[in-house]
Structures are given as structure tokens and as C-alpha cells.
């Protein structure tokens, strides 16, 4: 039962990742692209936690923490660049 639920959730987050990629690549204002990048990071985090859950290992959590940190930094840097034209003033 848990295995099927993990597959269902992985499919949902995977489709979400593709939708975000569509917004990133094709449509959307610059604000939407920043938002899509942020949501992509979140979906990738969920996918990695689900992968670690299905394999029964805790190794992926350390990687997830690092990705969460860099995702935040990259989103702020991207928004800053779109707003001001440079990142570190």
C-alpha cells in the first residue's frame, strides 16, 4: 500500500516539475519565472525525499537540506538580479 502511494506522489510531483519547466521555458513574466524556479526546487526536494523513502535510507536527507539551502539562495539571487540588475552591490 505504501509503495503504491509513493508511486502516486512521485508521479504527482514529477508532473508538477514538468509544468514548472513549461512555465520556465515558454510562458510567463519574469516574476513567474522566478516563482517557477522556486517551485521546481520544492518539487525536487519532495521527489528526493520520496526516493529516499522508497529505498529506506536516510542518506538523501543531507542532500535535501543542502538543496533547500541553495534553492533559497538561488531564488533570492535571481529575483534580486531581475529587480536591480546586479546581485551584490
Amino acid at each position: 500500500m505504501i509503495a503504491i502511494a509513493i508511486q502516486f506522489a512521485s508521479a504527482c510531483f514529477g508532473i508538477g516539475l514538468l509544468l514548472n519547466l513549461w512555465v520556465m521555458a515558454r510562458t510567463g513574466t519574469p516574476g513567474d519565472k522566478v516563482l517557477a524556479l522556486d517551485t521546481m526546487v520544492i518539487n525536487a526536494i519532495a521527489l528526493m525525499v520520496l526516493y529516499g523513502l522508497s529505498h529506506g535510507t536516510a542518506v538523501y536527507f543531507e542532500a535535501v537540506i543542502i538543496i533547500a539551502m541553495f534553492g533559497f539562495v538561488s531564488t533570492v539571487a535571481y529575483a534580486r538580479f531581475k529587480l536591480r540588475g546586479n546581485i551584490i552591490e
Binding site: M1, I2, I4, I6, F8, A9, F13, N20, T39, I42
Partner: peptide, 18 residues
């Protein structure tokens, strides 16, 4: 199972709403 299904639905809805 319930938490996984709920989270999957909300994750999809979040990306679809975008």
C-alpha cells in the same frame, strides 16, 4: 498512505495553479 496521497495532490495543485 493518506499523508502521501494528500501531499501528492497538493503538490500537483500547486504546480498546476502556476
Amino acid at each position: 498512505t493518506a499523508f502521501l496521497v494528500i501531499s501528492g495532490v497538493f503538490g500537483f495543485v500547486g504546480s498546476y495553479g502556476l
